[in-house]
Write a protein that binds this DNA or RNA. Structure first.
Length: 192
DNA sequence: TAGCTGATTGACT
DNA sequence: GTCAATCAGCTAA
C-alpha cells in the first residue's frame, strides 16, 4: 500500500505538508525498516534560490523537472545522504526533503546502523540520520516511491496533530521562507 | 585538470 | 559556541 503517483503531482508546499504522518518504508539491506514522517521541507523551482533546481541545474534537472513520485537522493558534505520526494508534473520542478522520522518498524536494525540505542531520538531526527538508519544511498536516486525498495505509504492513523510552520534549516540562500513543516511536540523533530 | 561548495553531523571548547 | 570530515558535481581554464 503506497501513495498514488497523483499525490505528488501538486506543488511542493502542499505535498510537504501532507507528507507529515505518512510512512516511509525501506527494504534496503534485507530488513524492513520504516518510520513516520514528522518533519519536511519544500524546495521549489528555479525561482527558489535554495532549490537544486536553481543551484545544481544539470545534475538535478532530469529528476526535478520530470514527473513527481520519484526519490531524489544526493550526498552532502561528502558524508551524509539526503532523501527527497520529487513533486509536480513534468516541467514543474519541485521536491520535498524528508528531514525526520519517528521509527515504527525495525528500530533495532536502525540502531545497529546508527550506533545508538533503539529508543534514542538520535536514530532518525535528521536527514542524514534517517538515510543512514534506512540504508538509503545514491543507489536509490531516481527510484519510484510507489514501488520498489524505498516507498512511501499513507498515514497508519488519522492525522491528529498540530502542524508547525517555519523557515528552512541549514541553508544559505532564501533561508527565511516558511517552507519547513513539522508535527508539533513530536520528539523526533530535529531542533537547531 | 584543479579548485570550490554544501538542504549535516558529531566532537570538542 | 566553533570546527573538521569528505566527495559528487559544478565552474574555470
Amino acid at each position: 500500500m503506497t501513495l498514488p503517483r497523483g499525490f505528488y503531482f501538486r506543488p511542493a508546499r502542499a505535498v510537504a505538508r501532507e507528507l507529515l504522518g505518512c510512512i516511509l518504508v525501506s527494504r534496503r539491506g534485507g530488513t524492513l525498516t520504516a518510520g513516520r514522517i514528522v518533519e519536511t521541507e519544500a524546495y521549489l523551482g528555479p525561482e527558489d534560490a535554495a532549490s537544486h533546481a536553481a543551484i545544481r541545474p544539470v545534475a538535478a534537472h532530469r529528476l526535478l523537472y520530470g514527473d513527481g513520485g520519484r526519490a531524489y537522493v544526493f550526498r552532502i558534505y561528502g558524508v551524509h545522504h539526503c532523501l527527497n520526494a520529487v513533486t509536480g508534473r513534468a516541467g514543474h520542478p519541485g521536491c520535498v526533503l524528508i528531514r525526520a522520522l519517528e521509527p515504527v518498524r525495525g528500530a533495532p536494525t536502525m540502531a545497529r546502523r546508527r550506533g545508538v540505542t533503539a529508543d534514542s531520538v538520535l536514530l532518525t531526527n535528521g536527514p542524514g540520520k534517517l538515510s543512514e538508519a534506512l540504508a538509503i544511498t545514491l543507489r536509490d536516486n531516481g527510484a519510484d516511491l510507489a514501488q520498489g525498495l524505498v516507498m512511501i505509504g499513507p498515514p497508519d492513523a488519522p492525522r491528529r496533530f498540530a502542524v508547525g510552520v517555519g523557515p528552512r534549516v541549514g541553508i544559505t540562500r532564501a533561508a527565511s521562507r516558511p517552507l519547513r513543516f513539522w508535527i508539533r511536540g513530536n520528539p523526533y523533530v530535529s531542533r537547531r
